[in-house]
Design a protein around this nucleic acid. Structure first.
Lengths: 132, 132
DNA sequence: TAACGTTTGTTATAATATAACATATTTTAG
DNA sequence: CTAAAATATGTTATATTATAACAAACGTTA
């Protein structure tokens, strides 16, 4: 069941910025965006991001050290994420493909490791950048 | 055909360290390890790593900012990588599963993006850490 | 209301990565 | 062979990303 989560002031401010952004945001770019709202230090951003990631509201694009809002409204805990990243324009899309997600969630390592979480990042050229 | 690649002095030094390591190494830990060999600056490490990654000899574990030697001798260009990472002891294994690799290589985004490369990172607890 | 957990604010610093420039070395082509 | 081009090196400085540590405020809840 989709539990409505309650966030603190700073957490709401950060989530709001990331949700309104067109693409992934870097932590320090979030910081510059919220300085007028009284947030002054990186710590405050990273702390909020940590909680929001835990809650599945935000994902980290590891290869870019950047953060995006979760597009899958049902993705309460970010334990199965996949993204497509254009190497040219750097546009990032969250992939929500049930088959892919199921396939990977079922995947188990030979060496007896049971996976709790995965992150998949695809790289290529998006439609627009292919043409150029 | 497996083309034998030739590497420069610094590239060989860095590759050697990473290949001999038991697990992923951080760039600065590589640096400290090679200072006796006359490499003094991070630049030199990062430059060597870049080339080695391009050549598929080394992969970057994005979620850890660390580098491992490629275990798949046939993986000349690192365009399809998958790793299992223990969240407790941080041990990292390169997964070489032909089916998985084929499945993901064939995967295409709805939005017309053709993928050239992917990186997949699974997280969980390894056998040893599950017991503890 | 006291005790506890969580969030905030703040200063400082650690860790990761790149810029820029001067040389040197290796490779390629004429 | 040799000039030009490409690749690699060495070096200093700096940018970027992230965490440590501590004090104070807030908010539950027992």
């Amino acid at each position: 069941m989709a539990q409505t989560q309650t966030f603190s002031k700073n957490q709401r401010i950060v989530l709001d910025i990331v949700e309104k952004a067109k693409g992934p945001l870097k932590a320090y770019s979030i910081l510059f965006n919220v300085q007028k709202k009284g947030i002054n230090a990186p710590q405050q951003i990273y702390r909020a991001l940590d909680k929001l990631i835990e809650a599945g509201k935000i994902h980290k694009i590891e290869s870019k050290n950047a953060f995006v809002a979760c597009k899958n409204s049902n993705c309460e805990v970010s334990k199965a994420t996949a993204f497509s990243i254009c190497e040219s324009c750097e546009i990032v899309d969250e992939i929500s493909d049930t088959k892919l997600s199921k396939y990977l969630s079922k995947f188990n390592h030979k060496k007896g490791m049971k996976f709790k979480r995965f992150n998949l990042e695809f790289f290529g050229l998006c439609k627009k950048c292919k043409i150029k």
